[in-house]
Design a protein around this nucleic acid. Structure first.
Lengths: 116, 116
DNA sequence: TGTCCATTTCGTTTTACACCGAAATATAAT
DNA sequence: ATTATATTTCGGTGTAAAACGAAATGGACA
C-alpha cells in the first residue's frame, strides 16, 4: 500500500464524528437514521462520513429492507486496517461524549425514528 | 483525553509527508535541513509539519548548536501516543517512497547541506 | 403501477490545511 | 560586534474537507 493510501486511513480517523461512529459500531450495527439521531447532524453529512469510512475498508453497509445497516468490516483483509480496528477500543475509550453515544444506542429505534 | 484530541492525533498522521518524517526519524534523529533536502519541500513547510507532530507528542525537537535535532519522543507518557508510535513500523513499512527516504538518510550531511 | 421513505448525490458555503517566499529570530563563527 | 546561517513565524494563495438543504435514487409495500 502506498504511503498516500496509509495517510488516507488516518485521515478517515481524523474527524471526531467519524471516531464516534466507529465507537458506536463497536456496540452494534446501525442504520443511517440512528447514527444521525445520535450525532445530531444532517443525514447527508452522516452519509458522507460513512462513505469515507467505507472507502478505506473500516466499515461496510448492508442493505436491509429500506434501511442500510452499517457495521465494522467483518471480512477485512488488509493487515493495517485490521490492526487499527483492533486497537480502536483501546484508543477511543469512554470519554464523556462516546460514553453518552453508546448509552443512546440502547434507546434509539429505527422504527420510531424514521416512520413518522 | 477528549475525542477531539484523539482525532488530532490521527490528523497529525493524515499527511503523507508527516508519515515520511516519522519513518525517517525511526532511523535516526534529523535536523530540519536534512528533512527538507529529502522531502524536497520549502523549509518553512517542513518546520510546520514538525510543529504539528511535536504538538501531539509524537516527536520532540532538541537544540544542538545552530541546528535543531528532531527525534521520536523518547519520554512520551500518553498510552495512545506510545502505542501508535510502536505500531508505526508495522503500518508504514517500506513502500517505494519511504525506502528511498531511508536510503537518502545515509548520505545526507547537515554540514554539506547547510554551510554553502 | 404508483407512493412512501431511507439513503445518496449534488451544489454551495464556510472553514481548515498545505504550501511558498519573505521577514523575524537565534545561534555560530569570524 | 558583525556577519552568516538554521529555524521559526507571518502573510497570502490555492485546494480540500465538513456542513447543510434540496433534489435524485432505489427499495418496500399498498
Amino acid at each position: 500500500m502506498l504511503i498516500e493510501e496509509k495517510a488516507k486511513l488516518f485521515k478517515a480517523l481524523s474527524d471526531p464524528n467519524r471516531l464516534r461512529i466507529l465507537k458506536m459500531l463497536q456496540a452494534r450495527k446501525l442504520c443511517v437514521c440512528e447514527i444521525t439521531e445520535i450525532l445530531e447532524l444532517a443525514t447527508s453529512t452522516v452519509s458522507e462520513h460513512l462513505r469515507i469510512l467505507e472507502a478505506v475498508g473500516f466499515i461496510i453497509g448492508e442493505k436491509d429492507g429500506k434501511w442500510v445497516n452499517y457495521m465494522l468490516n467483518p471480512h477485512c483483509c488488509d493487515a493495517t486496517v485490521i490492526s487499527i480496528l483492533s486497537m480502536l477500543p483501546f484508543w477511543v475509550s469512554n470519554d464523556t461524549v462516546t460514553s453518552s453515544d453508546v448509552e443512546k444506542i440502547n434507546s434509539v429505534d429505527r422504527n420510531k425514528l424514521c416512520c413518522k
